[in-house]
Amino acid sequence: MNYIKAFAPATVANVSCGFDIFGFAIEEPGDVVEIWRRDEPGIIIKDIFGDEGRLPRNPEKNAVTGVMIHLLKHLGITNFGCEVALHKNMPLGSGMGSSAASAVAGVVAMNELLDCPLARTELLPFAMEGERIASGSAHADNVGPALLGGFVIIRSYSPLDVFSIPVPKDLYCTLVHPDIEINTKDARYILRDEVSLKNTISQMGNVAGLVAGLMKEDYDLISRSMVDVIIEPVRSILIPEFNKVKQAALDHGALGCSISGSGPSMFALSRGIENAKKVGEVMKRTFSEAGIESSTHVSLINQGGPLIMEKN
């Protein structure tokens, strides 16, 4: 093959109480990566669309091509050459897994172009390197679901242990992105290094309850468990009108509402698409009343992850 076009979806990380261990993919938006073989060795970034010139054009410093370089080194391939185009279809610093989508689309496209020497699950450490390039931290709660699809749990980082769990078929996500930006590094910097035993116990109970609620299709348990007593109280101060938007979502039927990733996007989970749409409308309206424009996406949890859109 000489050409590959791949898509990887946006994701919601943390999922309220599951900081750095929970994440799920949604159906759209997502990033698209194109790769063309070339005769000369080396990776060249041909174009980046939608980033307003903000992303690095140095292949080693860009998440999409950095993962390709790591993959080629791992496979011992030294004479491979290609040109890469990245289509950014979500804002930078959005809390929607923007860098993860780029990294996953890149590593999946490269693996496909090389006739799939690695299984999908084996690509995860390379995708995580894309997160390290982009934010300085190789976390897996965005790249995991972007790569594997579904609702993903990172049980351990050392050794890496990632798996997915079933979710209710009528569970919908409403993802609202206000037109502001939060740097992931800044959002991690403000977090405390230590938490109280009381809060730790409460958080552990909610984590267990959310997993059980999802697997048992117990919507009431899901709702009771979507409480974050550690991360949300700190990060929410970075999002204007957070408390009003969250309360509006809950008042209009959302099971729960919290920060998507490091923000500023917010997500809500609802039972049924009509509820999810209604929640999206009221969240958007609440932001608008404060003079903040926003975009809304309503989606089932994406079980498939990345897609190969075209190849020849």
Rank of each mutant, 00 (worst) to 15 (best):
171 L>R: 14
168 P>C: 13
222 I>T: 02
92 L>F: 13
263 G>M: 11
220 D>E: 10
223 S>H: 03
186 D>C: 05
245 V>E: 09
152 V>E: 04
57 R>T: 14
154 I>V: 12
34 E>V: 09
50 G>L: 06
90 M>H: 13
143 V>R: 06
138 A>E: 09
39 D>R: 15
269 L>G: 01
170 D>W: 10
39 D>T: 15
294 S>I: 11
32 V>S: 05
30 G>H: 08
180 I>D: 03
219 Y>W: 06
291 G>H: 06
226 M>Y: 02
257 C>Q: 01
96 M>I: 05
179 D>H: 12
6 A>W: 09
162 V>K: 07
299 S>Y: 09
107 V>D: 04
11 T>L: 02
38 R>E: 00
191 L>N: 05
11 T>M: 08
292 I>K: 14
40 E>C: 14
158 S>F: 12
274 E>P: 01
64 V>M: 13
312 N>I: 12
220 D>K: 03
20 D>Y: 07
228 D>V: 10
156 S>F: 08
57 R>G: 00
23 G>D: 09
70 H>P: 03
199 N>A: 04
282 V>T: 07
290 A>L: 00
155 R>K: 14
1 M>F: 09
29 P>M: 13
306 P>L: 10
25 A>Y: 08
6 A>N: 11
19 F>N: 09
286 T>H: 11
287 F>V: 02
124 L>M: 03
12 V>K: 04
240 P>L: 08
267 F>V: 08
8 A>H: 03
287 F>H: 10
102 S>E: 04
172 Y>V: 01
137 S>A: 15
105 A>L: 04
217 E>F: 04
184 T>R: 10
51 D>A: 07
272 G>H: 12
225 S>K: 02
31 D>Q: 14
176 V>M: 00
245 V>H: 03
138 A>M: 10
265 S>T: 08
44 I>F: 03
260 S>Y: 03
310 E>G: 08
163 F>M: 09
250 L>D: 14
100 A>G: 13
